[in-house]
C-alpha cells in the first residue's frame, strides 16, 4: 500500500562546535490521504526538525521521503512546494508586510492567476473578501492564520505542514481555527501533519499521533488508543499535564 506521504528511517544530527544534538533518530512516519497526523513533544524534541525535513528545508543525514510512493529525498522547498505547504506559527510574519493579502495569495499560486478562486477560498476559511485589500499588520493573528490556510489551498498543495500554527493565538481564536480545520477535514479537503506541544489540541483534531522526545518517536498510534492506553511514561506525563490544564467538567 502506498501512503500519501511517508518517511523511512529519518536521521539528523546538528553539530555546533563542541555540541552535538540528535534532532531526529530513526524516525518513521506515514500519512494517508484525508488524514491528520499529530506530532507532539516539548521544545527540543525534534518535532519542528521533522517538519522541516519533510518540507526539504534541511538536509537529512540519512533516510528517505516518499510522496505517493515516489521518492523525493533531497528536494528543496521550491520543488516540494508543488505538493506541500508550510503553515507557520507566526501567521502575521508569514506575509510580506508591504503587500496586500490578495497579492500575497496570488503570488503563491503556481497556475494562472484566478482572483475568483481566491475570493471563494477566503470565504471558505471564514473571512470577508474586503480583508484581501489589507496588509498583514491590519489583520489579527487569527485572520492571518486563516489567510495562510487559504493561501495553502490556492497553491494547490495536497499536504499541509502545520508548525505550532495556533500556539501564538488566544485560546478562543485557537478554538475557532480548530473548528475550521475540523470542518475542512470532514469535507475531505485536508491531509496534514500537525505539530504541537499541546496533546489536548492534537486529540481534538488528529486521527493518529506521534509522541516525540529527544529526537525519537516514543509512541505512535490511533489517538483514542494512545489516550486510553499510553504505553510510554513520557506520553503519560504529557497526558497528565494536559488533563490538569484543561477544565474537565463539561458545561452546558
Amino acid at each position: 500500500m502506498t501512503y500519501l506521504l511517508e518517511g523511512k528511517n529519518l536521521n539528523k544530527t546538528f553539530r555546533e562546535k563542541a555540541k552535538t544534538t540528535i534532532a531526529l533518530s530513526e524516525v518513521n512516519f506515514c500519512l494517508n490521504k484525508g488524514e491528520i497526523l499529530g506530532v507532539v513533544g516539548e521544545s527540543g524534541s525534534g518535532k519542528t526538525t521533522l517538519l522541516k525535513a519533510i518540507a526539504g528545508m534541511l538536509k537529512l543525514d540519512q533516510g528517505s521521503l516518499f510522496y505517493n510512493g515516489t521518492e523525493y529525498t533531497g528536494q528543496k522547498p521550491r520543488q516540494t512546494g508543488q505538493f506541500l505547504q508550510m503553515i507557520f506559527q507566526d501567521a502575521n510574519s508569514s506575509f510580506d508586510p508591504r503587500m496586500v493579502m490578495e497579492k500575497s495569495l496570488i503570488e503563491s499560486g503556481r497556475r494562472e492567476k484566478n482572483p475568483e478562486r481566491i475570493r471563494q477560498l477566503v470565504q471558505l476559511v471564514g473571512l470577508e473578501e474586503e480583508l484581501l485589500q489589507r496588509k498583514p499588520a491590519a489583520l489579527s493573528g487569527g485572520q492571518c492564520q486563516r489567510m495562510a490556510i487559504a493561501r495553502a489551498f490556492y497553491s494547490d498543495a495536497e499536504i499541509f505542514l502545520c508548525d505550532e500554527m495556533t500556539s501564538a493565538l488566544d485560546v478562543s481564536t485557537q478554538a475557532r481555527i480548530l473548528e475550521l480545520l475540523r470542518d475542512l477535514k470532514k469535507e475531505g479537503r485536508l491531509s496534514a501533519v500537525f505539530v504541537s506541544h499541546d496533546i489536548a489540541l492534537v486529540s481534538m483534531l488528529c486521527d493518529r499521533i506521534m509522541v516525540m522526545k529527544d529526537g525519537k518517536c516514543v509512541e505512535e498510534g490511533e489517538i483514542s488508543e494512545v489516550i486510553r492506553n499510553p504505553s510510554d511514561d513520557y506520553t503519560r506525563a504529557l497526558l497528565e499535564s494536559a488533563r490538569r490544564q484543561s477544565i474537565q467538567e463539561p458545561i452546558g
Binding site: 485560546v171 478554538a175 486510553r228 488533563r243 484543561s246
Partner: peptide, 13 residues
Amino acid sequence: TKNLLRDVPKLSS
C-alpha cells in the same frame, strides 16, 4: 465566560 471555558482544549478520544 462559558465560551472561554468551552474553548480550552480538552483531551478527547
